[in-house]
Simulated scan of single mutants.
Amino acid sequence: MDTDIAFAYTEGIPDDVVRDRLESTVGGVLALADGDDAYAFPVFHHFEDGSLYFRLGEAADSEKSAYLDATETATYVVTETESTPDAEAWTGWSVVARGPIAAVPDGDPAYEAVEINERYAPIRIFDEPTDEMDVTLYELEIEELTGRQN
Rank of each mutant, 00 (worst) to 15 (best):
F7T: 15
A6V: 15
A103Q: 13
G50M: 01
A113K: 13
P105E: 04
D36E: 14
L52C: 05
W90E: 00
L22T: 12
G28A: 08
A113W: 02
Y76V: 05
D61N: 12
S51V: 06
E82M: 09
V26Y: 02
D20Y: 00
W93S: 07
E48W: 05
P109F: 02
D15E: 14
E11Y: 04
D61A: 08
E48N: 06
D106R: 12
R19S: 06
S62H: 12
G12C: 05
A8N: 11
Y39C: 10
W93Y: 03
I116T: 13
Y39H: 14
A8L: 15
P85I: 00
V78E: 05
L32T: 07
F7A: 12
P109D: 10
P14V: 06
V95K: 07
P42R: 03
S51R: 12
P109E: 12
I5W: 00
F54A: 00
G27S: 14
Y111W: 00
A60Q: 07
Y39F: 15
F54K: 07
A6D: 05
T25M: 07
H45R: 10
V18P: 00
T81E: 09
G107V: 03
E82S: 06
A40T: 01
D16V: 10
D86C: 01
P100I: 04
P109H: 06
A40H: 13
H46M: 04
V78A: 11
D36M: 08
V17C: 03
A89Q: 15
D16Y: 12
E48R: 13
R98I: 09
E58R: 11
E112Q: 12
P109I: 02
S65K: 03
G27W: 02
Y9S: 13
A33H: 14
D20W: 00
E23D: 01
G35Q: 13
T84Y: 09
Y67E: 07
E82F: 01
L68R: 07
D108G: 05
Y39T: 01
Y67Q: 10
E112G: 03
A110T: 00
D108I: 01
V104D: 05
D69V: 03
E11P: 06
L32A: 11
S94I: 10
G57E: 08
E23Q: 13
D4C: 09
G27L: 02
E80H: 11
E48S: 12
